[in-house]
């Protein structure tokens, strides 16, 4: 418990987490309002469409999570941390809990904020959460943010440098997973198991991909159910985090 308080003090006593939080809310909500304002009968507004911007917020949240650990290395406070609590696993887990909780809350706020602002802009369109799919579309965003934060923390622990960790996360999430399609035949099959694609399947699965995230001719066929997809994404993230913690325990601080 005390360690949670410690990590909370650390996180909120510097400015960058506040800015990241603000940005992670503003980007999805802003994009939702632009989409809502431009929707019409040819391009009808749906619940899932209001969540288009979740990727932007996810990226910002992952940057926040990576920074939470890499700045400790950058400024040497990780040494003070391990000096204060020599059992390194404890403060790292505490940090993961605090950052993940924040990510989850921001995700939910961003998702419902995006839905809310769309309703305000287009009061005539029925944007109600009537099906479980629609609930997942919106409420699932917080869960994806939380898992993304775990993954970013793990990468941060392994890489220890802000620039390195952030570029790996950006290239992985935005570039590498999409470029895999370029491999003939098996590209699409591999893609069905890539974490960020699977996370997207959790949010939007069960209906034809409305955003054409892949853009290629062959559609990705996912093998997991939407909730199975979330478990998969969470599992991958947790695995990276655990590797990060194990490696940190072995290394010199």
């Amino acid at each position: 418990m005390t360690l949670l308080a410690v990590e909370r003090i650390k996180l909120f006593s510097t400015r960058s987490p506040w800015w990241c939080t603000l940005l992670a809310l503003a980007l999805p909500i802003g994009l939702a309002s632009i989409i809502a304002a431009n929707s019409n009968s040819d391009f009808p507004l749906t619940v899932s469409l209001t969540q288009t911007g979740y990727t932007f917020g996810l990226i910002v949240i992952m940057v926040l999570a990576a920074l939470a650990i890499t700045t400790e290395y950058r400024f040497g406070t990780i040494k003070s941390t391990f000096q204060a609590v020599p059992n390194r696993t404890a403060p790292l887990v505490a940090k993961a809990v605090v950052v993940t909780l924040l990510a989850g809350v921001v995700g939910e706020a961003a998702a419902f904020g995006a839905l809310g602002i769309s309703k305000l802009i287009k009061p005539d369109v029925a944007l109600t959460l009537s099906s479980s799919t629609e609930w997942r579309n919106v409420a699932g965003v917080g869960l994806v943010y939380a898992c993304g934060a775990l993954l970013a923390l793990g990468v941060g622990m392994l890489i220890r440098q802000t620039a390195g960790a952030v570029s790996i996360l950006l290239v992985w999430a935005l570039l590498a997973e999409n470029l895999v399609t370029l491999i003939p035949k098996i590209g699409v099959k591999i893609q069905a198991w890539l974490p960020f694609h699977v996370a997207d399947h959790f949010l939007n699965g069960g209906e034809p991909t409305p955003r054409g995230r892949d853009g290629g001719p062959a559609a990705v066929v996912y093998h997991l159910s939407p909730w199975g997809s979330l478990l998969y994404f969470a599992g991958v993230s947790l695995a990276v985090l655990i590797i990060g913690i194990v490696v940190t325990n072995k290394r010199d601080a």
Binding site: K10, T14, F75, G76
Partner: peptide, 13 residues
């Protein structure tokens, strides 16, 4: 211990 006086986050009070 004081090993390095610069081991503080510059934007933290």
């Amino acid at each position: 211990a004081l090993l390095d006086a610069k081991w503080v986050h510059p934007n933290r009070s």
